[in-house]
């Protein structure tokens, strides 16, 4: 709102400044010089107000609109859970008290294992994701821009994306044995198609006008890819990255749950599977909750801010207005 007023102010000022003082317009522009300056002042004022306002509003709004609803939702689920336990809807070994899950968590923390377990999985997941990123980016670029390769690989990439990555665990174990390489292979097979497809979609949505404009400015080939195509495709690419992380995390958990070996460090998936073997339902639920929380936390801490920044800088985010 404010910005549209600002620009109008500038335009009027322009109209006065642009006029040659030769014609009869001299009198007019002299008469308008006052309002023109007024509008310039108005513009500066509005800009200042705008900047302060967005910050002040967002601080209050974030609490009410972004933080509060999830807390309420979690509280509601916990309350429902507690009610079901108290009402003895199912036996305890199927649905333990939330307090028992909390105790498991505390125990894990006091044993000093909690962070180790989380870190084992997160480091695997992120490292696998980074390799996937390094492979998928050139792959997506080539698939998007080279017709022949696209016709050949495009459908395969889309197909792979709908293949559950658990399916890759058995062959990966046979190929590579029970080790970290196997885990990374499963992550890659899950995440690479997802990131590459995101990049392809992002590039497909680049307005041809940008490419033409780039060509008239002298950007061709790799220069054009670097300065025009990739930045223009960034929103789609970032969406692909987000999805790629989700796929990485899912694939890793599938691999960790299925593949058991003392050589592999204890990650969240193995922890979950171990608790099942111990028939410790509170531990199983804790494992699931930790997997969920870590997945969400990585998205919120890493990918959401990147996405917000990319979209906001382009004026594609509603709250930026």
């Amino acid at each position: 709102m404010a910005s549209s007023k600002t620009t109008r102010g500038a335009a009027v000022e322009e109209a006065d400044g642009g006029k040659r003082p030769t014609e009869k317009s001299t009198a007019k522009s002299a008469g308008k010089a006052g309002p023109g300056q007024d509008l310039a002042g108005l513009e500066a004022g509005l800009d200042a107000l705008d900047a302060v306002q967005t910050k002040r509003v967002s601080a209050a709004e974030v609490l009410v609109q972004k933080v509060l609803p999830p807390i309420v939702a979690v509280a509601f689920v916990l309350a429902l859970w507690k009610v079901l336990v108290v009402a003895k809807v199912t036996p305890d070994y199927k649905l333990p008290d939330p307090g028992l899950v909390w105790d498991s968590l505390r125990q894990l923390w006091l044993q000093g294992e909690l962070l180790d377990i989380i870190w084992t999985s997160v480091s695997r997941g992120l490292f696998g994701f980074l390799i996937a990123l390094a492979i998928a980016t050139p792959l997506g670029l080539v698939v998007a821009r080279v017709k022949f390769i696209r016709a050949g690989l495009g459908p395969i990439l889309s197909g792979l994306q709908s293949l559950p990555s658990v399916a890759w665990v058995p062959p990966a174990v046979i190929w590579l044995g029970l080790n970290d390489q196997m885990m990374y292979t499963v992550i890659l097979l899950g995440a690479v198609p997802s990131i590459a497809n995101g990049l392809v979609a992002g590039i497909d949505q680049v307005p041809p006008l940008f490419l033409r404009a780039g060509r008239t400015l002298g950007a061709r080939g790799l220069v054009s890819a670097r300065h025009i195509l990739l930045p223009a495709a960034l929103p789609g690419y970032v969406a692909g990255l987000k999805q790629g992380w989700a796929f990485s995390w899912r694939s890793l958990m599938a691999a960790e749950i299925i593949a058991k070996s003392p050589d592999l460090g204890l990650g969240l998936g193995q922890y979950l599977e171990n608790q099942r073997n111990n028939s410790d339902m509170a531990g199983v639920l804790l494992g699931i909750l930790l997997i969920l929380v870590v997945g969400i936390a990585i998205e919120l801490l890493i990918f959401a801010p990147i996405e917000r920044r990319v979209l906001r800088s382009r004026g594609l985010l509603a709250s930026a207005r």
Binding site: L209, R212, A213, L217, A219, H227, P231, A232, L234, R314
Partner: peptide, 19 residues
């Protein structure tokens, strides 16, 4: 046809850079 990922100034600088 300005590039939305760049500021007004950087749009012009890109043209200069490509030249």
């Amino acid at each position: 046809a300005l590039f939305p990922w760049l500021t007004a100034g950087k749009n012009i600088e890109l043209a200069l850079r490509l030249r």
